[in-house]
């Protein structure tokens, strides 16, 4: 599905070659948690996953590479994370079972890894949608969906009425469904923070 990169997409990609922290932060926020989860699935430990992904971002920063479009950048991030995770496993001999699953097929991603990328990307979208919800609404959706709190507990903790919690939650879930297309929405929220 080739398409011409939008102007703002170009800004982000150019920002990466010129060491622009604003654009870099945007990429970091978009992909950090998802790549950590992807790496954790390979190495089996969340703590090591964060180290691995931080290395990937440090290298991205140092290289200041040029990417033709976001797709190439995404592809680079997942492959770099996967390779770093495999290197980590080679170093640490403790989880041989997982190595057996992931070590066949060094250069190209395996079919199983491709499925992991698909799964991670779908949930990354959902996760970013929640992160980009308006402030109060987003907070309530996070408390309920991510922290698993009951409506009564949320009302209590935020010192607001039970009805407000219910309204904001419904609104949040609706926004998640009726949202604009991914890139447009993400960019809108990026610039609204800095305007």
């Amino acid at each position: 599905m080739p398409r011409t990169p939008s102007h703002t997409e170009q800004q982000i990609l150019r920002g990466l070659t010129s060491g622009d922290t604003l654009q870099y932060s945007y990429i970091f926020k978009e992909y950090y948690s998802a790549l950590c989860l992807f790496a954790a699935r390979i190495v089996g430990e969340p703590g090591h996953a964060e180290d691995i992904v931080q290395d990937v971002f440090e290298k991205l920063w140092q290289k200041q590479s040029y990417f033709a479009d976001l797709r190439h950048l995404k592809d680079y991030l997942y492959k770099a994370t996967r390779n770093a995770a495999l290197n980590f496993l080679k170093g640490a001999r403790h989880s041989q079972e997982r190595q057996a699953i992931f070590l066949d097929g060094q250069e190209e991603m395996t079919a199983a890894e491709d499925l992991e990328v698909i799964r991670t990307e779908v949930f990354r979208e959902i996760y970013r949608e929640i992160a980009n919800l308006p402030e109060q609404c987003g907070k309530i959706v996070r408390m309920s969906y991510i922290e698993g709190l009951k409506n009564e507990q949320i009302a209590e903790l935020l010192d607001i009425s039970l009805q407000t919690v219910k309204n904001q939650k419904t609104r949040g879930m609706k926004l998640l469904r009726m949202r604009l297309s991914p890139v447009v929405f993400a960019l809108f929220s990026l610039f609204s923070h800095h305007s």
Binding site: S25, F28, Y32, E50, D51
Partner: peptide, 28 residues
């Protein structure tokens, strides 16, 4: 789905980004 989103939320991206931008090395 909820479990996947929760798993993603355990990673503290805000802290990681601040650490990076403040020029601190990532904790080895």
């Amino acid at each position: 789905r909820q479990q996947q989103v929760q798993a993603m939320a355990q990673f503290d991206e805000a802290a990681a980004l601040e650490r990076f931008l403040s020029g601190k090395p990532a904790p080895r």
